[in-house]
């Protein structure tokens, strides 16, 4: 009997440790793969804006992709903010527990289920021509178009958490504000949202983390030019889409540089997610 208890414990703990091994192995492999590139370029890898695979003149700098990633993600967050904020109030406050909320909530969840490549197709064949008809340059490719699609993709992540937290704000708190004569809007802005603040912020941070790593939809819309984007409508490239685009023909220094970019992306999303989770933990 005692033996079987022990074996159970050992199995549980050793399998659970696998996740640490996997995470540790990921860091190790990414660092290992990136070493040749870091050795060759040093810190210049991060600040150089020259990505040139031509033999003899080979030089790899990640700046265009770091800026491309940050720019599209920040812009996506800005676009998503009012939409997701409104939707979470719709679901968590105004129409809480109503049938219509169930329907809208399910649809928002389904947005999270649409594969990235389908978003990319829709962006390419529907959104892009639409933006061109409004006068967008570069045949509609660029940071702005990619950001709109990214915004739609991250809305469910931002919405679901903030909607849950907003719905959890105790009703006696809201009633206290109503009993002082406040209108619903005043209650929402002064009591409900401030009380749910950290959850709402955490939701946006996690959504931002999602945006940083999105690949296919961005690849299909950002224009894939290896330059630091000169404006919101300029073309550019993100770290994730660069890896997807250039991996096929890569070896040697180029492969190492792509892995280095993967490492930067890994660290960046890791930090952002850690911040988001930390806020959620503190809330609990």
């Amino acid at each position: 009997m005692v033996n079987s208890e022990k074996i159970t414990k050992i199995v549980l703990i050793s399998v659970s440790l696998l996740i640490i091994v996997i995470a540790g192995g990921m860091v190790f492999s990414l660092f290992g793969g990136a070493i040749p590139s870091f050795k060759e370029f040093g810190l210049k890898f991060i600040v150089s804006n020259n990505w040139n695979p031509t033999e003899g003149k080979e030089n790899y700098g990640a700046l265009p992709f770091i800026t491309g990633t940050l720019l599209t993600s920040v812009l996506a967050l800005i676009i998503a903010l009012p939409l997701s904020f409104s939707t979470s109030l719709f679901l968590g406050e105004y129409y809480r527990n109503k049938r219509i909320s169930k329907i809208i909530g399910t649809m928002v969840d389904l947005l999270a289920g649409i594969p990235s490549i389908v978003y990319g197709l829709w962006g390419f064949y529907v959104l892009r021509p639409f933006l061109v008809s409004l006068g967008a340059p570069n045949q509609g490719f660029g940071v702005f178009t990619a950001s709109i699609i990214l915004a739609i993709m991250i809305i469910p992540y931002a919405t679901s958490l903030s909607n849950e937290i907003i719905a959890m704000v105790p009703s006696d708190l809201k009633e206290a504000a109503y009993s002082l004569g406040a209108t619903r809007l005043e209650v929402v802005l002064n009591v409900t949202v401030p009380a749910a603040r950290s959850g709402v912020v955490a939701g946006y941070i996690l959504a931002f983390g999602r945006a940083l790593g999105e690949t296919m939809a961005v690849t299909m819309l950002i224009g894939n030019s290896n330059l630091v984007p000169k404006g919101l409508f300029a073309t550019g490239n993100s770290m994730a889409s660069l890896i997807a685009n250039q991996f096929g023909e890569a070896d040697g220094l180029k492969l190492s540089s792509l892995i280095a970019i993967g490492l930067i992306l890994f660290i960046l999303t890791g930090i952002i997610n850690a911040i988001g989770k930390f806020i959620i933990k503190k809330m609990e």
Binding site: D172, L173, E175, A176, S179, G181, A182, T183, P194, A195
Partner: peptide, 21 residues
């Protein structure tokens, strides 16, 4: 209700000060 509620103060079962204020 804005006018009505201002003329009557209400105190609830559980103390519920606004936590963010």
């Amino acid at each position: 209700t804005i006018k009505v509620r201002r003329r009557m103060g209400m105190v609830f079962q559980r103390p519920n000060p606004f936590p963010t204020m």
